[in-house]
């Protein structure tokens, strides 16, 4: 009997540790065991294990995110090619708007910090104040740093995460630099969680790589809707709210299919692209797609091995 109890305790503590590592709520059995603490003390960290989230209002995406966007910690958003940087930047900026809104509801007019590797903003363009404004970001509360090297950018990001003033910190990096590998991303993630600041790692034209982020999305461009007319029809050939094609590459929950979204800057929220159009996009994609550029010389494009991929080789 005594041996049994010891084993049970070991298993419970192991489960507790795993839950902590995975940063999700405690399994029911551990929770009841903890509640029945003989001394009647409850540990302070117990309640905080429930993540604070920001629901996006899109069922498919909120399921993948287990409730919504985490309010602290690191998230990774990448795009495959430089020319898609506009769409990815739009998605990142939309998330920044959402985070800023959360802080505003609490009464803080918090600024957003956008750290960009100089090479990245030179290739994909500088953020543009009137554009940010019409997108929903207040230019007065948009701070921008152009860091010469990745190391400088990391230093600034880490410093920014230590102060709890920013609504969100965006770290824009081009490709997969060697100085931002798993251990560095882990460090940033821990810092972001300690500071209570969301860090959006925006990897421009980068490969999939193992990281500590809560999730990783790949953003692809998607054709926007057409402007609605007062009589219910649409204006043919017009371009309405920006649309995104989102692929969930890393998440805690299983993601079934691609998600199509639309950002409404006026309402400051995402809307799902209507089903008919997303089905059409999913089925056949655009007509006459442009071939992506050939893979660079150093990397072989072999067929993917069967089975579930658990860890990536370093892309840097």
């Amino acid at each position: 009997m005594a041996e049994n109890a010891v084993q049970r305790q070991t298993i419970l503590s192991l489960r507790d540790t795993i839950a902590r590592i995975e940063n999700c709520s405690l399994p029911g059995i551990v929770r009841t065991a903890k509640a029945a603490d003989a001394a009647g003390f409850r540990r302070g960290s117990e309640g905080t294990l429930h993540r604070k989230v920001l629901p996006l209002g899109i069922a498919a995406l909120d399921d993948v995110l287990k409730g919504g966007l985490p309010l602290e910690g690191m998230m990774e958003i990448r795009n495959a090619e430089t020319r898609d940087a506009g769409a990815a930047a739009g998605f990142v900026a939309a998330l920044a708007v959402l985070y800023q809104q959360v802080r505003k509801e609490k009464g803080h007019l918090a600024p957003v910090l956008w750290i960009s590797q100089a090479l990245a903003s030179r290739e994909a363009g500088h953020p543009y104040a009137p554009g940010l404004r019409s997108y929903g970001l207040d230019p007065q509360r948009f701070l921008f740093v152009s860091a010469r090297t990745v190391k400088d950018a990391l230093w600034i990001a880490e410093t920014a995460l230590l102060v709890p003033v920013f609504a969100a910190v965006v770290l824009e990096i081009r490709g997969n630099p060697a100085c931002l590998a798993l251990s560095e991303s882990r460090r940033l993630h821990v810092r972001a969680r300690a500071g209570g600041v969301p860090l959006l790692l925006f990897r421009q034209a980068g490969e999939e790589e193992a990281s500590s982020a809560f999730f990783r999305f790949q953003i692809k461009p998607a054709p926007a809707g057409e402007r609605p007319l007062p009589d219910g029809s649409v204006l043919c050939g017009s371009i309405d709210h920006p649309a995104f094609h989102l692929l969930v590459e890393k998440s805690r929950a299983y993601a079934a299919a691609d998600i199509f979204l639309e950002w409404n800057a006026h309402d400051r929220r995402f809307y799902p692209l209507d089903e008919r159009r997303s089905a059409a996009l999913q089925a056949n994609g655009p007509e006459n797609p442009v071939d992506p550029l050939s893979a660079s010389a150093g990397r072989s494009h072999r067929a993917q091995p069967l089975g579930r991929l658990l860890a990536f080789a370093r892309a840097s």
């Binding site: 506009g86 900026a93 500088h126 953020p127 543009y128 019409s134």
Partner: peptide
């Protein structure tokens, strides 16, 4: 009053 429909990123 600022014009709407401006791009998010601009080339210098």
């Amino acid at each position: 009053a600022f014009p709407e429909n401006r791009p998010l990123r601009i080339f210098t």
